[in-house]
Design a protein around this nucleic acid. Sequence first.
RNA 1: GCACCCGUGGCUCAGCUGGAUAGAGCAUCUGAUUGCGGUUCAGAAGGUCAUAGGUUCGAAUCCUAUCGGGUGUACCA
Length: 579
Amino acid sequence: MKYSSHIFQKWILKMQIRSQLNRLIQRACERANILVDRVQVNEASKVAFGDYQFNGAMALAKSLKKKPRDIAQSIVDAIEDNDILEYVEIAGPGFINLHLSNNWLSTNIKNIVQDRRLGIVAKENPSKVVVDYSGPNMAKQMHVGHLRSTIIGDSLANLFTFLGDDVIRQNHIGDWGTQFGMLIAYLEELGEGGEGSLKDLEEFYKRAKQRFDEDENFANKSREYVVKLQGGDVRCLHLWENFIDKSLSHCEDVYSKLNIKLSREDVKAESSYNDDLANIVNDLEAKGLLKESQGAKVVFIEAEENPLIIQKSDGGFLYATTDLAAIRFRASKLGANRISYVVDARQAEHFKQIFSVAKMAGYVSEDVKLEHVSFGMMLDKSGRPFKTRDGGTVKLIDLLEEAVERAKGAISKRDSYEQEELEKVAEIIGIGAVKYSDLSINRESNYIFDWDKMLSLEGNTSLYQQYAYARIRSIFRKYNGKLEGDVILEEPQERLLALKLLQLEDTLYSSAKEAMPHYITSYLYELSTLFMKFYETCPILREDTPENIRQSRLILAQITANTLRLALDILGIKVLERI
RNA sequence: GCACCCGUGGCUCAGCUGGAUAGAGCAUCUGAUUGCGGUUCAGAAGGUCAUAGGUUCGAAUCCUAUCGGGUGUACCA
């Protein structure tokens, strides 16, 4: 989907509700001579308290030596004229409750009905953001261990892109290491006809390993091939490239099925940094950061128990070395202002060290934001690490096929589908369920993978959103007249829905800022439940609905559908016209 | 041993960086509805936010200790 804005800048009433309110209160504080470092307006905790609230007056009481209610009063008195607030009230010990103007809400809603970007303006000063995610190992088939990084990373990359950042996706694939000697030796042994056996990489790896363990000659050959590979032997390099190519195309099957936007252009393999590793060592040496410890070359970091090992005692490099080369490349060659590593939480210490050393060595300047977007483990329903019945790793492609099969089972009893349509619908629902359930929890916590829960129509699931979308589309199959007239917010359900629709922008920005996709899913769930309530109480196409009310409700429904589609698209989830 | 993360109703999770009576969804119970797609909607019940102290006008949120769970702890990635 392309997101070009169809409305002219001047027509846009600047939204970003929270920052508008923050500015309003900030200026009021200044006018009232109240010093406050950062004004933070929050969404009201209850409907009765208005739409937003500012709670800062209480905190200021002590330093100003005034009563909090008096402080609140002077802030309220100093709020300048504006068209966003209907009225303001002071409650309890000094809460300032802000009620938005219906007129402001309805004007803004009306303005975004034709806009593919729903009135959300891209950042004025975009950053260059590198998102490092997925990073599968080429020696093996992609397994569930790669699922979360791939899903979370891709959605963040989409989100940053939508908000206007210049995003560079980096798939840091593992294509180097001693096991490749064994793999290409085995590939060679099977001959050209043996390439078919690469279909199942897992099996291929196992057999190669078996040969390695059983046959001394084969093992020696494998070791020899590692050396040859590193030495740039043309024949070995050819075998290796061939192997990587096949393995990568397996990954692409997964990406394509998962609706992940990684392509070959985003691949920046570990091996591509090989030539730079010695430079990193020399550079750290020259900067006086490198120390010798127990035969290895390391960098000591303040307040860290263990140093970061840069070069092994046998002269070999480690992944820390590669990561430093990569971080330098990203900051200097790619010019990144923000580098996000979507990697599981177990590597927290590693990244902490890498980031420290990168800054110590000046590979990234102080203002570059380095973040480890960490996430918890994937567990099964009983809370144990997710494995196959016999304890093996679950291949990702198998898991995705199961998702589609299960989705088929969930919907086929509902309606009769043509076989072809059933496949298409099941794929969208099944894959959507896998992605949404992953994205809908706080990524930091462990993730319990539960088929029944994710494929349910009830609760915070993708299917519930997809259903809400399809339901709205069904209204517009019945009605295909024009959308015109004003938005009228008389019923509470209409107003609540309108406000929620206008909060998408704030949600997206805070989700991007903290790299927390679950802010978006929470928003979506609130939105679709609000829509369902609206739909229940506010008839649209019924005969007795006056035309002006009908138009207003159609506009609300239309924007709800657009919002669902847009936000789900950012999460990499597709919608269906009918389910 | 040390470091980091996590303990919120039976289950799965929110809780916007300290605010008002801690919110949802499953599951359980009750009700609406011949419906613009009821696979919906309304309502009830269910919590000493692991425990004990502390800071504060105010704590699930910050500090300390304890208990319980997880992860990581120099030449694998």
